[in-house]
């Protein structure tokens, strides 16, 4: 079972993602802000993190992504998909710079999210094998 961590401040969006992924074989974990997300990621060592860009608190999505990618234990084994409400070119570039593996712009299609998650997990599985 792949472990997925959702880091998102809006409860409705967390609920949406949770319900979207409910039909797959995933262990779903949630965090409400960047700091909490980073802490949980270190403990959980999730296979994939769905990470909101704009979050309250000391760490925003990009910073969490950078930390994850810089972490020797997580870096290569954890895929990161950024969720942003901005969808501007600078955000995409920022995301790539932070080492994100995927990018979804709000509002996103739940099926698209499922496809993205499955694709990244499959790639990770291939790499692991």
């Amino acid at each position: 079972m792949d472990r997925i961590l959702i880091v998102e401040d809006q409860p409705d969006i967390r609920k949406l993602i949770r319900m979207t992924l409910a039909f797959g074989y995933y262990e779903i974990y949630e965090a409400e802000n960047g700091l909490e997300g980073w802490a949980r990621a270190q403990g959980l060592r999730p296979d994939l993190i769905l990470l909101d860009v704009m979050m309250p608190g000391e760490l925003d999505g990009f910073q969490v992504c950078e930390k994850v990618k810089a972490d020797p234990a997580l870096g290569r084994s954890t895929a990161v998909v950024m969720l942003t409400a901005r969808g501007q070119k600078t955000d995409l570039e920022h995301g790539a710079k932070s080492g994100a593996d995927g990018y979804l712009t709000k509002p996103f299609s739940p099926l698209e999210l499922v496809d993205k998650v499955e694709e990244l997990l499959a790639r990770r599985a291939t790499r692991a094998a």
């Binding site: 901005r86 969808g87 709000k106 509002p107 299609s109 099926l111």
Partner: peptide, 22 residues
């Protein structure tokens, strides 16, 4: 404003899609 508009839209768009599909 885009962020503020997109957040509720993400819910509306996402949940309605789930309702339609599942």
């Amino acid at each position: 404003a885009a962020h503020e508009l997109r957040t509720p839209m993400a819910s509306i768009f996402g949940f309605s899609e789930l309702l339609l599909r599942r």
